[in-house]
Design a protein around this nucleic acid. Structure first.
Lengths: 240, 240
DNA sequence: ACCTGAACACCGTTCAAGT
DNA sequence: ACCTGAACACCGTTCAAGT
């Protein structure tokens, strides 16, 4: 028994303890946990548990929980880079608008794979290298399209989180109100106070009459908003 | 001493215990605390402390912490309503665009008074009555301007959090990177990888050469993005 | 060098008890 | 009816100790 090499232990699929912990393993376990159980399940103790280790062991590989969150965001951005075959400033023959649209919708796919990412990104106060490089290629694309850096700067602010493929929906996840009644009930009782929302719902909900909530196609709405911005910017370039 | 009425206690400015707790007092104390010390300082224990009471007493007036956060958001929305002299659907003589612009910039003022509000609003999963009524007046304004409810619906999604006067800035609060070095240092070391960001900074930073961070005028950027969207929507109305 | 047990200083929340 | 003390089940993190 004591003559077994480390390799043998792995072969016999002994408890995970045999594979040494590393920053990458910690980050991978955290992403898995967040994907499966949501970001609120990401605690130092639960990440450690998933690795068959005590919580305190994690601190040998990451400084603290903030650094852990920075790390998994960086991972998502690296996925985007891989999906795009690297970050490049050159636009395709399709023109700057189609190229940018494609990049942003690719970023969006990563956000949909990791639904916790937008929320975590918004709480980050530190800039990661991959995020800067991603933004650099967008700025570069604007420049190559003929925009001044000044307008490109405004454009980046105007895009905001849409540049990364998400947009915080204020209306969306609510299916119960603060007092616990469902939204339909509340809508009904407020109908006289909110005539336009009620009428809008009546018109829009037509396609999916089962519920008033979830009547929105997120992808359609995202693209509508993105195109509204990109079209507006295009018009600024062509009318000097 | 024992013959003093409750009123007398108050006059003598005895400890706060004399004034009975109420939902409104709890919410007011929470808003004060968040304004002064940030949202991370809002714990049940600290809110209670500010009221001269034990944490557990709060639970007689609000169900739990989530309800507390719902309550302070509702308060901010009521401030907006008061600032606007009530929510009304009618547009002024200024036309729909100027009217909507004014409402949204008024909402923005409330967000600037309560810097914690955007972050808390984004984590809400429940809809409050005042929020719905606010949105109803925006939808009503679109309708009165000649938009269909279908387009108004897309427009509300396109505005997103900008409808409430804020926009999550992905770039902004970072003045140090994940490894603790400052942004200027990192930018310098990455200069060859991020040529466009560096060049953009060089052009834009001109006005305030002291630092690269904080070179953005939030209000200007917010209005740029808002106008880009409103102008785009206006064009959709006039080109059927 | 890498991992851990015990402990600390916090959380939100429950419950039985006080007035 | 309103408030509280003690306790529970969690957190992130530190430190001294183990291998």
């Amino acid at each position: 028994m004591s003559s077994l090499t480390e390799y043998d232990y792995v072969e016999m699929s002994r408890p995970a303890k045999r594979t040494p912990l590393s920053r990458d393993r910690v980050l991978a376990a955290t992403v898995e946990l967040a994907d499966e159980s949501g970001i609120e399940a990401v605690t130092m103790r639960k990440v450690a548990e998933r690795l068959g280790v005590e919580a305190m062991s994690l601190y040998h590989h990451i400084a603290n929980k903030e650094a852990l969150l920075d790390g998994i965001v960086e991972g998502v951005l690296q996925e985007i880079e891989a999906d795009l075959g690297g970050f490049t400033t050159e636009m395709g023959e399709a023109g700057w608008k189609a190229t940018m649209r494609h990049r942003i919708l690719t970023a969006r796919q990563a956000m949909l794979r990791h639904r916790w990412a937008p929320g975590v990104i918004e709480t980050r106060t530190t800039m990661t290298p991959t995020l800067i490089r991603y933004f650099d290629t967008l700025v570069g694309l604007f420049k190559e399209a003929g925009f001044t850096y000044d307008v490109a700067h405004h454009a980046m602010h105007a895009l905001g989180s849409r540049a990364l493929g998400f947009n915080q929906e204020l209306f969306e996840p609510a299916d119960t109100t603060a007092d616990g009644q469902d939204v339909d009930t509340m809508m009904e009782s407020m109908a006289s106070e909110i005539p336009h929302i009620v009428a809008m719902l009546a018109e829009v909900v037509d396609h999916d009459p089962e519920s008033t909530v979830g009547w929105c196609d997120d992808q359609t709405e995202f693209e509508f908003g993105l195109d509204l911005l990109l079209d507006g910017l295009e018009r600024m370039a062509s009318t000097p």
